[in-house]
């Protein structure tokens, strides 16, 4: 695959926290406009991969490229800041600023970091809020919103800097089940608009539905990767199959030949997270 096609490229990344190895040779490639999901058991290093891409964590070994920027080579804070303007990050715990209203949360970064004039930042903020269906809560404070509402605002906040790449770190894991759907709808819309997205998620059905490529990680290594129909329907590696069985609540995965089958054959009630 020619390098100019891939927006994100991780090559043989190794990372350890003190003596504990977390990533043991990760190779990931994300093309522009592609939606990639990373699935795997807890502690397999999925969230760490996302944080490496945006420079929040530094691996001891390996290469990370975002566009034409070598993330490992960035030393000065202002270079990291330039990188983070291009990469949007949405956290599991929403992490909105509690002392600012929804609107202020959205315009803070564009105005202070992006140097955007206030009027334009406000206009864009309103447009983004409409896109995530939170227009009516522009003046509310995070403490007054439900989890699903806060997460949608968090997504809008990450989009406010007009990033080329969006990273989602288990964004529905902290939500009550009835709010998961509204957040997934927003992500689905973003993917269909052509935004490059990398999702770490436990929502297997959703990952199968929106992704172009799925990576399965375990113990800091990529065990298997491929199109969702292949990885979910006919996993090549037995560990992938074992994980999917556990995730689906102990029901053996059936071999699927019809790609449309995958949309209807997973029973949502059996998906334990």
């Amino acid at each position: 695959m020619p390098d100019t096609d891939s927006l994100v490229r991780l090559s043989n990344v190794h990372l350890a926290f003190g003596d504990t190895p977390v990533l043991n040779g990760i190779d990931i490639s994300v093309r522009r406009g592609e939606a990639v999901s990373i699935i795997g058991p807890s502690g397999s290093g999925k969230s760490t991969i996302l944080r490496c891409i945006t420079g929040l964590l530094r691996p001891q070994q390996g290469g990370i490229r975002v566009g034409d920027v070598d993330v490992q080579a960035l030393r000065r804070e202002r270079d990291l800041i330039a990188l983070r303007k291009r990469v949007g990050f949405v956290f599991q715990q929403y992490n909105l600023f509690p002392h600012m209203s929804v609107l202020e949360n959205l315009v803070a970064a564009p105005i202070k970091v992006g140097g955007v004039p206030r009027a334009r930042a406000l206009a864009r903020a309103h447009a983004l809020l409409a896109r995530v269906h939170m227009e009516h809560k522009a003046g509310a404070y995070p403490g007054e919103l439900s989890g699903g509402q806060q997460q949608r605002v968090a997504i809008a906040r990450a989009l406010a800097l007009e990033p080329e790449l969006m990273l989602f770190d288990e964004v529905t894991s902290a939500l009550d089940p009835e709010m998961v759907g509204e957040v997934l709808t927003v992500i689905r819309d973003l993917v269909s608009d052509g935004l490059t997205c990398v999702l770490v998620t436990h929502e297997m059905r959703f990952a199968e539905e929106v992704s172009d490529t799925v990576y399965f990680t375990e113990a800091g290594r990529i065990v298997e990767s491929g199109p969702p129909a292949q990885l979910f329907g006919a996993p090549r590696n037995e560990r992938t199959g074992a994980f999917l069985q556990r995730a689906a609540g102990g029901v053996p995965a059936r071999r699927r030949s019809d790609p449309f089958d995958s949309l209807f054959s997973f029973d949502p009630l059996r998906l334990a997270v």
Binding site: T54, L56, E77, R78, L80, I81, A82, L83, R84, K85, V87, G88, F89, F91, Q93, N95, L96, F97, P98, A108, A109, K112, V113, A154, R157, A158, L161
Partner: peptide, 14 residues
């Protein structure tokens, strides 16, 4: 909370 600060860093604040 550390997570709030992490969010600010991810938004490219210095």
């Amino acid at each position: 909370p550390g997570v709030t600060l992490e969010a600010a860093r991810s938004l490219a604040f210095s």
